[in-house]
Amino acid sequence: MKTATRDTIFGLVMLGASGLLWLETTRPQYDGIPALNYGFPPDFYPKILLGIWAFVSVLIIVRSRMIAQAEAEGLHPGKLVVSMAVVGLYCWLVGVIGFLLATIPFTGLFMAVLGYRRPVVMLAVTALFPVGVWWLMSGPLQIFLPESPWFNSF
């Protein structure tokens, strides 16, 4: 994609977003309570921000029509989507089957996704790292990570 096209689209999307958020601020919950407002309801400050937001978006669109065309830096869409999907799945699984049970398969899988192919190291990291983090958190740091519905404490 050309940088100019990219910036125009970005500006338009942001302009649209500011419009939608402005609509949201017209709902009654943004009127606040007169006794607490002192003339400045809850939507006062967000509306200022949204105004600047829309203005800057327009400037970006205008400027994108002025800059020289160049090819934007490309990313590998396949790899990007796969890595995001794996991480997304992992985030979801942590809430469902608990940190430890989700992290062990993720660790092995994600190293493979990133193109790592040394089974011994992968096995060692998969076995040690999740348990190590879990131990560090629930032991010395007393931060309790999500648990699975089946076992006591992990």
């Binding site: 190293m111 990133l114 999740p130 983090v133």
Partner: peptide, 9 residues
């Protein structure tokens, strides 16, 4: 890949 996996966790 190992480092990044750890970073995600």
């Amino acid at each position: 890949p190992v480092l990044f996996t750890m970073v995600v966790v």
